[in-house]
Every structure is written in structure tokens, then in C-alpha cells.
């Protein structure tokens, strides 16, 4: 475990905590995409099936369980919480799941390291994670007043991806035979998805203005 990896995981964790706190404190999920959260739930379920088959470390297991539990909590609140669910922007959050899920599934069947159920699902989760933020970004673009916490949530998620790239560079230089091309390419694609958002986030922060994304 290197510092970039740990910082990346902590940033990922922090992003989810920010979202949970925001929803809990304001009793609102305005500007939050349920589609993105549900895609993340699919990502975590498919990737963490190895909780049952492969023990890596206590840290690894605990983090996986936290990511699963927190994502399902967010989904539960957005769908069923008496107060929060009323604030969900259903009409704006219109991105279609199948546009992301189907291509990723097909790609995972074709491009994988082993054609087994576990491996294909794992690879599928890698591809799906790369694009799962898209419904959230589209929703942000449609939201006129992006509140700070939603903006920070997406910024932290993007930072987590950037830190993972540094982690891979570090591992590549220090560990012999450490290669994972599918993960690297998906991770780079995933980080590129955030670049546009980063640009406007930093600009609004420097100018002390409220964040808004051009349509």
C-alpha cells in the first residue's frame, strides 16, 4: 500500500461521506443522480463478489463493505426516505442505464483476462465504473444552482481517480511484473471524463463564484 493508493481510497471514502452528510443534514438529494448511485451499486456488487472467495486483508474487506453499505444507504434514502425522496430531480435525471450497461457488458465479454463468470463480472465492473459518473455530470449540467456539497462530491470522486493513476505509476516503478492494462485504460478514460468538470470547478473556486456548468 503506497501513499497515493491510501490517499485515493480515503478521498473516495470522503466523497461518499460528504454525500451522506449532505443528504442527512439538508434532508435533500437535490442535484444527486440516482442513476449514478445505482450504477455504482452494480459496480461494487459485481467487483466485490470476491468477498466470498478471496481474502486480501482486513483493510480491503472493511473498505469493500463500507462502499457497499454506504451506496445502498444513499439509494435507499433517495428512493424511500419520507422527506429525501421528494427532493429527487426525477425529471432531470433521465440518462438511460442501458446506454452504459450494455456496451460495458459486451466489452467485458470480449475483452477480459479469463472467460469465467467471476472474471467477466469483475471486468464489467471496471468498465462500468469508468462511465458511471456520466448521469451525475449530465444532471449537474442541468442544475442551475449546484450547491457546494454536490460539487465537492464530484470533485472528490475525480480526485480519487487521479490519485489511483499516481498509485499505478508508483507500483509500476516499484513492483516487478505489475501490469493491468484493462484497469489502466479504463481508469484513464474515467479520469478524462472529469477533466471538463475540474476546469469549471477550479475556475469557479478561483473567481469565488457559484459553480455552474455550461450546457
Amino acid at each position: 500500500m503506497n501513499i497515493f493508493r491510501l490517499a485515493g481510497d480515503m478521498t473516495h471514502l470522503l466523497s461518499i461521506i460528504v454525500l451522506l452528510l449532505k443528504m442527512n443534514a439538508t434532508r435533500s438529494c437535490r442535484g444527486v443522480s440516482l442513476k449514478t448511485q445505482e450504477l455504482y451499486a452494480v459496480v461494487f456488487v459485481c467487483r466485490y463478489l470476491d468477498l466470498f472467495t478471496n481474502f486480501i486483508s482486513l483493510y480491503n474487506t472493511v473498505m469493500k463493505l463500507i462502499f457497499l453499505a454506504s451506496t445502498f444507504t444513499i439509494i435507499y434514502w433517495m428512493r424511500f426516505h419520507k422527506v429525501i425522496r421528494v427532493t429527487y430531480d426525477r425529471e432531470q435525471d433521465t440518462f438511460r442505464y442501458q446506454f452504459l450497461v450494455l456496451p460495458c457488458l459486451v466489452l467485458a465479454m470480449v475483452l477480459n483476462s479469463e472467460f469465467t463468470v467471476m472474471e467477466v463480472l469483475w471486468t464489467f465492473s471496471i468498465y462500468l465504473e469508468a462511465v458511471a459518473i456520466l448521469p451525475q455530470l449530465v444532471l449537474l449540467q442541468r442544475t442551475n444552482n449546484i450547491d457546494n456539497l454536490t460539487g465537492n462530491y464530484v470533485f472528490l470522486l475525480g480526485s480519487y481517480r487521479a490519485l489511483y493513476i499516481l498509485n499505478w505509476i508508483y507500483r509500476f516503478m516499484t513492483e516487478p511484473n505489475y501490469r493491468q492494462y484493462l484497469v489502466w485504460i479504463s481508469g484513464i478514460v474515467q479520469t478524462i471524463v472529469y477533466i471538463d468538470f475540474f476546469y469549471y470547478y477550479i475556475k469557479s473556486w478561483r473567481n469565488n463564484e457559484k459553480l455552474s456548468l455550461p450546457a
Binding site: N112, S113, Q180, L182
Partner: peptide, 10 residues
């Protein structure tokens, strides 16, 4: 694609 991936990342 033949690669054995270390699945120790989250």
C-alpha cells in the same frame, strides 16, 4: 488478453 491481475485494489 493474457494478464493475471492483482485484485488487491478497490
Amino acid at each position: 488478453v493474457a494478464e493475471k491481475i492483482a485484485k488487491d485494489e478497490l
